Every structure is written in C-alpha cells, then in structure tokens.
Simulated assay, not measured.
Amino acid sequence: MVLREWARDDLAPVADVRAALRRVAVDPSALTDDEWVALLGADGDELEELAALADAARRRSVSDPEALTFVVNRNMETASVVDATSPTVEDLAREAWHLGATEICIQGPLPVEADADGYLDLIRRIHGAAPGLHLHAFRPPEIVDAAARRGITVADFLTEARDAGLGSVPGTAAQVLDDEVRSALSGGMAPPVDDWVEVITTAHRSGLFSTATLLYGHVETPVHQVRHLRRLVEIQRSTKGFSELIVMPLLPQNAPPPVAGIAGATVSRRETRAVHAVARLMTVGAFDHLQVAWTKVEPDTVDMLLRGGADDLGGLLLDGLLRPDAGQEAGRELDLDEVGAIADRAGRTPRQRTTAYTAPPADRTLPLPRVRA
C-alpha cells in the first residue's frame, strides 16, 4: 500500500454527503465509517451544514455553551530545562506561578546521558518550586523511557510520578493510531499503536488523566482519521481518562524527514473545518471538549472552528521575562485581550479553566477584558 496515493482535497459525492448529513442530524452514533468518510469530503453548503451540526453538538456537550474556555499555562521542553542554570526550571515554575498560571506543560525526552532519575527529579523540582501548579508532563514515549531508565514497569513509574506531583499526561505522540501511518512518519522507527494505547490506559488506571490528539495533514487518509477517532472513543468509554480532544495539522516546518515536503503542504481550510466538525460529532457522548490548536492554524480559521464544534482555546503559553524554550511553540503567546477578541468574534464569553476543566481558585483567576455589550 502506498499511503500517499490520494488527493487531500478530494470531495465526496454531494448525494453521499447529503445522505450522511441527514443521518448524523438524527443520531451520530448510527453512522458507518463510510458515511463519516463522506462527511470529511463535505464542501460548500454541505460543509456549512456539517459545521452547524457540530456546533449544535458542542452546545449540548458542554456545561456552559456560551463560554470560550482557556487555561493559563507555560510550556517547557524537557531537554532545555533539565540542566539549565539560568534560568533554572525552578525559576521558570515560580515565574509562571507569579504570572497567574495554573499549569506547567513539559514534553520531550531527556538527553541520553541524563541521570536515570531525571524525569522524576524534574517533577519533584517543579512541584517543590510551585506546588500549586498542575503539572501536565511527559508523552507516552517519554514515560516508557523513564520507566526503562529506572528498570521498573510503566505502571510503577506512573505511580511514583503521580506521588511526586504529576497531575496529568499529554496524549500527544499518538499521531494517527495506525501502524502503517506511524511507520511512514517515523521512517519505520515508531513504536506500535498498541504500545501507545497501553501507556495511556495505564496512566488512566494509575489515577492520571490525559489529553487525546489527532495529528492530520500528512500521509493519512480520511479512512485513517475515522479509525483513529473510533479508537479514541473506544479508549474513553473504557477508562474515562481523556479530558479533551485536540485536533491539529502537521505543519510543514515541523514535519519529520520521512514526510518533509508532503506534510501540511496541501491541507486546506475546508479539510480543517471538516475534520474538526467530524471529530466533534463522532465523539459525542465520549468527549465533552474539543480544543482548537491555535498555534497551528490561521486566526480566521480559529474563528471558523469555534463556530464549527470547538469549545476550547487551549493555553496562553506564557513567556514572561524568562521566556522558556518550548520547542515548536517557543515564542507563541496569547494575551487576555486577544482571548477576549477571539471570544467576541465567536459570540462567546471567555472563561478561565484549570487543566481538569474546573474553575480556578479566586486568587488564580485573571481579570478578563469586557467583551460584547
């Protein structure tokens, strides 16, 4: 099978899309994979109807349909902060707290030469410096690496990490849950899908929640996208451990060498809107929250997605004066006025949340701009 033998913006026959739209309006759970694939090829009036149905599903799924939620957080890259001396990871955590953050997100592997206890030590250092911050850290490959370095099981490492201050796990590195797609993205080096699923479900069983993701815009097809979403829903119904679903395109500048020149090069706004709308409708009853990856799509597309199924804006990604190295998202930051303007355009009210989608304590709630008369 040659994964790339399809045109990204192939449109489904209008009759097929119309038939699927009629069925999804009545009962999204009744659709077949072929019908979801047809909806991923919607355009024109059919795409607008699909987005409207997804937005109606959003309103039914969230506790406050008039809100646009966001979290105040700071992102860091593991390798850049583990041995940093100026600023230290403790400096970065304390500044994030003083800036009003409720979350620290840290991703990426430790350097090969780092201490066997390096991951656990980072958790302890961050939690010790700012114990009020929720620590959202380490993707499944890093969890496997951490356990292997210590010579213990993944379950045992996750228990130690939780007890040391880890609050939740990023569900990134899922890419698309298909072994052939993952192999194509990694040049044959990606761990099997079942390994990713086992780590995530172990995290959930260990009392940690995680995000879930779909990375599209590379060698995958609409069939793969549908199968991926089906697998996430299956996991969620089993563990109830996912807090949100984040749908994001693979940008050309972030593409690994095996797919450089392919990834993201032909992803259209039409496809992005259809993928988000289908993601909302396919996960009704399993996922309450669908997040816009605002760092990876154009601002006017963000506006469309917030009217097409998405309810959450994700994190502010605070830089502050110390400006942590956050990998691909370094230098990207939203301020509260921008959040207010985005909410205003979407006809919603900005509402700060925690990582777990609860209201932050009063002393952690930032003053929001007044929007909409």
Score class of each variant (00 low, 15 high):
30 A>P: 08
280 R>K: 11
121 D>G: 04
20 A>R: 03
55 D>N: 15
112 V>G: 03
144 V>S: 14
175 Q>T: 09
248 M>D: 00
126 I>M: 13
100 G>C: 08
50 L>K: 04
94 R>F: 02
44 G>K: 07
253 Q>D: 15
159 T>M: 11
16 D>H: 06
82 V>D: 01
310 A>D: 01
61 S>C: 04
47 L>F: 04
25 A>F: 03
211 T>M: 07
322 L>H: 10
211 T>N: 12
336 L>H: 07
304 M>Q: 14
235 I>S: 03
103 E>A: 05
108 G>C: 07
173 A>N: 02
370 R>T: 15
110 L>T: 02
276 H>S: 05
308 G>F: 01
157 F>T: 07
146 A>K: 03
253 Q>C: 12
119 Y>R: 11
182 R>P: 00
23 R>S: 14
29 S>F: 00
207 G>W: 11
372 R>V: 15
162 R>S: 11
287 F>C: 09
102 T>A: 03
162 R>C: 10
326 A>Q: 08
260 A>C: 12
64 D>S: 14
300 D>P: 07
201 T>V: 09
16 D>G: 02
88 T>K: 07
118 G>P: 01
1 M>D: 03
295 T>L: 13
234 E>A: 13
88 T>F: 09
294 W>G: 02
202 T>V: 04
273 R>P: 00
32 T>D: 08
88 T>R: 12
71 V>C: 07
122 L>N: 10
265 A>D: 02
71 V>Y: 01
360 P>I: 08
345 R>T: 13
256 P>E: 08
